[in-house]
Design a protein around this nucleic acid. Structure first.
Lengths: 214, 214
DNA sequence: GTGATCTTGTGAATACAAGCACTAGCGTCG
DNA sequence: CGACGCTAGTGCTTGTATTCACAAGATCAC
């Protein structure tokens, strides 16, 4: 059963949510069928890529017609694991952590924040946007008890690796890291990062090189 | 002069800031020389990749010895365009935009926020973390006047494309998009995106598939 | 029904990235 | 001063992702 679908390439997985959003828009505007070309335009990619990406999910299109929007949306949600909620824990109750907790979009999209953690005992037992703050000493056990699947690291860089280790110890399988540092996790744990400074520096590179060539 | 260095691959550019951070750490701990192996470990990549990446910048290492930390740091900063500031404008003075403006890290790292823009006249002329809010009607002209190089889009999805268009009209060459939507920019303008929901959904995919195979 | 027109699904070609494994050069130690 | 050990630089192989281009299936008009 685990081998239901051939391995989906990483690059494809990263694009599925973009298609998903496009499909949601199409539903909103009551469009029932969509071609790979239209979907490609909405997602900002090439049509052949859309078709190949979607073909990994199965043959859900109809030649000469296109894809049924609702059906594809459902299949994709299922594939992405969005048909049920994924409890999320946020480590670090500072500016960023609080901002993330306050940002309603999480829960709304199926990622309810069920706990926050901080090493500052002053913050422990506070409620942030209705979410209770626990001490990081209790991270692993609490995360495990609450069935946390995804951990978000919003600590300073120096505490990030420790946070990751504790999350993993608590059985968390996926980590989203906002701390500006490289962290390592055991094989089998998924890790993605969001790093502002890094993004700006990449843009700076291209900015610099564009200027010098004009 | 613009052809000083052979074209640096995108994947390499995206890693340079990671090396840069590692080098900064090494300077802090007073290390004067570093091998590709050590740097690879710090950056979480393979040593051969480090050497290849650095070789695009020039031959700054010494065989049998390694790289001089300070010298490499300098060269890399230069290449990344970090030897001077890049004025940044933030479009959207809502929760996210304000949080970004309040986050000191920007200015500190050479990306001073020189202006914010919002379509809500109530917010115009407010100061957020010392940064004045302008109306989006004046976006292009103000951005141009202030010499903004990088624009950050922190608007709702529906306003993002318009914000991008105005930034481009104002001469902005690089855009960092936080809005959960695909935006398009003319050739020659750099575009990167940061999208929370998307990251969580990608993690959800792997989470889902890990579970089903255990 | 048959031909014209779409649009998917996919094999093959191309482009890009990663990693290995070797070579060249530097420093050091005996 | 010669041999050895270390480490950068890089050609080549392998793997992955993108794109092209076309055949196969579906619909529609008449």
């Amino acid at each position: 059963m685990s081998q239901r679908s051939r391995q989906i390439p990483e690059a494809t997985v990263a694009r599925l949510p973009v298609y998903l959003r496009s499909l949601a828009e199409l539903v909103d505007e009551k469009t029932s069928t969509v071609s790979s070309e239209r979907l490609a335009e909405m997602a900002g990619v090439n049509a052949a890529k859309v078709r190949k990406d979607l073909s990994y999910l199965g043959s859900y299109g109809t030649r000469g017609v296109g894809y049924d929007v609702e059906y594809l949306l459902f299949q994709m949600s299922r594939e992405l694991g969005l048909t049920h909620d994924w409890p999320v824990a946020i480590v670090g109750a500072g500016n960023l952590g609080s901002a993330l907790a306050n940002y309603g979009g999480f829960t709304q999209r199926g990622f309810p924040v069920v706990a926050m953690f901080d090493s500052d005992r002053q913050k422990v037992d506070n409620l942030i946007h209705g979410v209770r703050v626990f001490h990081t000493d209790d991270l692993a056990s609490t995360a495990s008890k609450l069935g946390v699947g995804i951990g978000v690291i919003a600590t300073p860089a120096s505490a990030a690796q420790d946070a990751a280790d504790k999350l993993v110890a608590g059985g968390v399988g996926s980590i989203l890291n906002f701390a500006p540092t490289v962290i390592s996790v055991p094989e089998g744990v998924s890790l993605r990062k969001v790093d502002l400074a890094l993004e700006l520096q990449i843009l700076s590179f291209y900015q610099e090189h564009r200027e010098s060539s004009e």
